[in-house]
Design a protein around this nucleic acid. Structure first.
Length: 229
DNA sequence: GCGACAG
DNA sequence: ATCTTGTCGC
């Protein structure tokens, strides 16, 4: 008698999801805008046609931290900083259980839903600090198919985004540890670099750094109270 | 066959 | 992402 060949651990489903993900990225990428197309202005002082109230002020940052005990438990975090003072004006967290695994090249399918939910919550409540620009912990067009997490969130939320990578794919470590800036949506690389530089007190720009710090802090406090395990 | 592979 | 100690320096 022949045994029915066992399917080696989800391989068929994984492959199907993989193809679906590629198709989704291809479709969303058609909507990607790779130049400056936002309504606000930068350093508008002294420029002709300066309109008060239209300058960039609210810069958001998103990140996710994970439980050390259960890798599927995560805390999505959204912060909004004042572009000029770099003070945190808003913060929100969402503790969730992620069902989608991390697959290189498909980070968005794991992390974007939580982050978009946090943005949506702000928008629905007409929060005055809703970000005019969002910095994302992860790459933008610096991606195997030119559509990383920052692009994904930007297109789906219709928001200008910048991708901040701390480890670029297929790169080697330089003598100093760089960050990798790539555009997400509705912004040019030139503008993105300028804005990132203006928000850097340390290696990582403040919106990302604050999201990271506060996200870790949030999940650490949960675990301290035994709310995770 | 082995290493690489955002977070 | 997370597991991990101390250490050098401002």
């Amino acid at each position: 008698m022949e045994e029915a060949p066992e399917e080696p651990l989800q391989s068929r489903d994984s492959w199907r999801d993989h193809q679906t993900w590629i198709t989704t990225q291809d479709i969303l990428r058609e909507k990607l805008i790779t130049d400056d197309s936002f309504s606000w202005k930068l350093s508008s002082e002294g420029e002709p046609g300066y309109k008060k109230g239209e300058e960039l002020r609210y810069v958001g940052g998103v990140d996710i931290s994970f439980s050390k005990d259960d890798p599927s438990k995560a805390c999505g975090t959204l912060v909004v900083l004042d572009f000029h003072t770099l003070q945190v004006l808003y913060q929100d967290f969402s503790f969730v259980t992620l069902q989608v695994p991390y697959v290189p090249g498909f980070l968005a399918f794991r992390e974007a839903p939580v982050l978009q939910q946090l943005l949506e919550k702000m928008k629905r409540s007409d929060n005055p600090f809703y970000p005019q620009l969002l910095m994302v912990d992860g790459n933008g067009i610096l991606h195997p198919r030119g559509f990383g997490l920052a692009c994904h969130i930007g297109v789906e939320a219709n928001l200008p985004t910048i991708g901040i990578g701390k480890n670029a794919m297929r790169s080697t470590q330089g003598s100093i540890k760089p960050i990798f800036i790539s555009i997400g949506h509705m912004i040019s690389l030139q503008t993105a670099i300028m804005i990132v530089q203006k928000t850097c007190k340390f290696r990582v720009p403040e919106p990302i750094r604050q999201a990271d710090i506060r996200s870790r802090d949030y999940i650490r406090k949960l675990e301290m109270n035994g709310k995770v395990t």
